[in-house]
């Protein structure tokens, strides 16, 4: 555990909590892509199957359980509890265009051809692109609530911090995992455009709206 890992995890946790609280407090999931949230629920489920096979630490187990639990709670709020506020018309990204290639890639490029390994690899690849339905929705409506941009910022920051964590681990532990690093780079790059808008608009007190 290093400082980048820890702040990365906390940033990830903050993102998840911000989104849950936003939906809960406003009693609405307007502007939130339910599809992205389903993808994240799939990501956590396929990655944390190792909860059943290996114990690392209390921190590790509890964070995994919190992430999985919150992911399903978010999906429940969007598709069941506040379904009436869900903006399905604007959430029109075709997720099969992500899941099918990512599934194929996980079968082709993995560390070992074992069910748990393939599912882990699948979750890493899928996470890197899971935010696309959300970004697509924002580009379609041309705007995002400020609280939604805070959520996206924390979520993007988390993977960027993990990149620093991997540099650290490479230097001090001689460890690197090419699959995680490449996918993490892709994931971080997808947020760059958003980071720019966040810094130039949201942090200056303006609402995030895209030019028509």
């Amino acid at each position: 555990m290093n400082v980048f890992r820890l702040t990365g995890d906390l940033s990830h946790l903050a993102a998840i909590i911000i989104l849950l609280l936003k939906i809960w407090k406003s009693r609405s999931c307007a502007g939130i892509s339910g599809k992205s949230q389903i993808l994240f629920a799939i990501v956590f489920t396929t990655r944390y199957l190792d909860l059943l096979t290996s114990f690392i630490s209390l921190y590790n187990t509890s964070m995994k359980l919190i992430y999985v639990g919150c992911a399903y709670a978010t999906v429940y709020l969007i598709y069941v509890k506040f379904r009436a506020t869900y903006d399905g018309n604007h959430d029109s990204f075709r997720v099969e265009f992500l899941i099918v290639p990512v599934g194929g890639l996980a079968v082709l490029i993995n560390h070992s051809f074992a069910p748990l390994e393939i599912l882990w690899t699948f979750s890493i690849y899928l996470e890197s692109v899971a935010i696309l339905p959300q970004l697509f929705m924002i580009s379609k409506t041309g705007e995002a609530e400020t609280i939604t941009t805070h959520y996206l910022f924390c979520l993007g920051l988390y993977r960027a911090l993990y990149l620093f964590n991997w540099v650290w681990r490479f230097y001090f532990e001689g460890f690197f995992d090419m699959i995680a690093i490449v996918a993490g780079l892709v994931q971080t790059v997808l947020y760059c455009d958003f980071f720019y808008l966040y810094v130039t608009k949201v942090l200056k007190g303006k609402k995030l709206s895209l030019p028509a």
């Binding site: 890992r5 995890d9 990830h12 190792d50 290996s54 690392i56 590790n60 964070m63 995994k64 992430y67 560390h111 882990w120 993990y162 964590n165 681990r169 460890f175 995992d177 995680a180």
Partner: peptide
């Protein structure tokens, strides 16, 4: 150590 790290990171 690949396998271990697999489970260690979130």
């Amino acid at each position: 150590a690949i396998g271990q790290t697999r489970h260690d990171e979130l």
